[in-house]
């Protein structure tokens, strides 16, 4: 019979168990997006995150972000089809929404919709909506409060248009 050794926390302190990559949090989200044209999509994410990729190869580009904590890999030709739903960057100050909008517009990416204190998905928020070059929907937003009404979303909210509920 095989016996399994259970490691103590001290044993995991050994550097061979620790990440070779440093980041500020204990963990961070990862997304992998399949894209038909790497350069075009990568250029958009450089503007969105205001940062160059940390790694790139022939068929992939990786962004490692501290703010928001995120590990994003773009892979070319890997079963490329559009995503459903959306991604977002949740902010704390409404002035920061404008910073995202200004940076995108200065680089000729347009913002699709601006919402100010709009009810959406059981909360009220201010946000801008935009899409990456392959149609992935993004929002930069601040959650202003809970939506206490019976109605899940307001009539103008972008996700209502998508048909949630």
């Amino acid at each position: 019979m095989q016996t399994q050794t259970v490691k103590s926390t001290e044993q995991f302190a050994d550097s061979s168990y620790r990440s070779a990559v440093h980041f500020c949090t204990q963990s961070r989200p990862h997304i992998r997006l399949a894209v038909p044209k790497l350069e075009q999509v990568s250029a958009f994410y450089e503007v969105l995150f205001n940062q160059s990729p940390s790694q790139q190869g022939e068929d992939y580009v990786r962004f490692e972000l501290e703010n928001p904590p995120l590990h994003l890999t773009l892979v070319e030709g890997f079963d490329a089809q559009p995503r459903d739903g959306h991604f977002g960057i949740q902010l704390k100050y409404t002035a920061e929404i404008k910073e995202f909008q200004d940076r995108l517009e200065k680089n000729n990416y347009k913002v699709d919709l601006e919402e100010t204190e709009t009810a959406c998905c059981f909360s009220v928020g201010s946000r801008v909506w935009f899409t990456d070059p392959i149609g992935t929907l993004w929002e930069a937003y601040v959650l202003i409060g809970e939506n206490t009404s019976e109605v899940r979303c307001g009539p103008t909210c972008a996700c209502e248009a998508e048909g949630c509920g």
Partner: peptide, 25 residues
């Protein structure tokens, strides 16, 4: 991981093709 994750019932556009993850320390 620092993340706000929501599940929305959108039957006509639920592709099930997400490739997500968590990078750990």
């Amino acid at each position: 991981p620092p993340m706000l994750f929501s599940l929305n019932r959108v039957v006509h556009n639920a592709k099930g093709n997400g490739d997500f993850g968590v990078q750990l320390n």
